[in-house]
Amino acid sequence: MTHINVLDPGASPLDYFGFELRRHRESAGLTQRQLGDILNYTGSLVGQIETARKLPTQEFSERADAALETGGLLSRLVELVMRSQLPAWFRQVAELEVRAIEMCTFHTHLVHGLLQTPAYARAVLGALDQEGLDDRVAVRLARQRIFEKDAPPVFWTVVSETVLRQEVGNREVMREQLAHLLSFEGNPRINVQVLPFSVGAHAGSQGSFDLFRFMNDPSILYTEGYGSGHPTADPDTIGDCSLRYDHLQAAALSIRDSAELIRQVMEERYGEQRDSLA
């Protein structure tokens, strides 16, 4: 007799997902292999997800919802699963991203995680540690689904010109990432500004930070260190960083001029023509 792992659905969102997937599959009278064939995945993968040994993807969840007629249950659960896989110190930030009506971010060396492409995220997350990289990339990209809500947040980001010129991954990865930033042109809810080198000393010289604003709750400032996050709702600190952000936006290029600089760097530094040089 084949041993069936007994999951405790209350142990974690991942265990709960596996429990519900198995319950609905068995109610439909399907084996793991049969469900895998319907979804165009292997039966082994279905088994790994049911026993909480593999993270489900959004695509897998949507296909399983359709095949098992769950009313979208698994697609809703997968968001909780992904959030639960974030480092413990970062989970509060992911909750803030979901609740915020506006975010104002300043980053000095990297594109914000909410705007990263899969290849760029993979290069960043895999710089020192390749273990579980596929899952860690999927978890980061899942946060971007906040932009698909009926009322997505307004997102403002000011990035140092360093972000454009620091080659993360390789030229192809950077070309794709900069093209992704350009894809937000004309989107009033996602606004990208570049702080050029020519500005010199600026109001963000103390480092990167994120400001979260909410409908009814006080704003929260988030800063980050190595393996730790530091949210605060202290009014004085919020006021200081809000003022700093105003000055950063004033010093940065306009949205249109920022797009032109991004386009220029993409063509001159990461352009296709360079690949053919001997």
Rank of each mutant, 00 (worst) to 15 (best):
T2E: 14
L7F: 05
P9S: 08
G10S: 13
G10A: 12
A11M: 05
A11R: 15
P13M: 03
F17L: 07
F17R: 13
G18C: 08
E20A: 04
L21P: 09
R22I: 04
R23I: 06
R25M: 00
E26Q: 12
E26L: 07
A28F: 00
G29M: 00
Q32W: 00
R33H: 12
L35W: 01
G36C: 03
I38G: 00
G43Y: 09
V46I: 15
V46G: 04
V46S: 06
A52M: 07
T57L: 05
T57F: 04
F60I: 10
S61Q: 09
S61T: 09
S61D: 10
E62D: 12
A64V: 06
A64T: 09
G71R: 13
S75Y: 01
R76Y: 06
R76L: 11
L77F: 03
V78C: 10
L80C: 02
V81C: 09
R83V: 05
P87W: 00
W89N: 04
W89G: 00
W89A: 02
Q92A: 10
Q92V: 11
V93M: 08
A100N: 05
A100M: 01
I101K: 12
M103R: 12
C104M: 11
H109Y: 08
L110G: 00
V111I: 15
V111T: 12
L114N: 01
T117C: 11
Y120L: 07
R122E: 14
A123K: 05
G126Q: 06
G126P: 08
L141C: 06
Q144R: 01
A151R: 15
V158G: 02
V158T: 10
E161Q: 14
V163W: 01
E167P: 11
G169F: 10
V173T: 15
V173Y: 10
A179P: 00
L181T: 06
L181Y: 04
L182D: 11
L182I: 12
F184I: 01
G186P: 01
I190W: 00
V192L: 08
V192T: 12
V192N: 04
L195S: 07
S198A: 15
G204V: 12
S205Y: 09
D210V: 15
D210H: 10
F212N: 02
F212W: 08
S219R: 06
S219V: 10
I220D: 02
G227F: 02
S228T: 14
S228K: 04
S228V: 11
P231D: 12
T232H: 10
P235W: 13
S242V: 14
S242Q: 14
Y245M: 15
D246V: 14
D246P: 00
A250T: 14
A252M: 11
S254F: 03
S254M: 07
I255V: 15
S258A: 08
Q264V: 00
Q264N: 05
V265H: 03
Y270T: 04
G271E: 06
E272N: 11
E272S: 13
R274N: 13
A278Q: 11
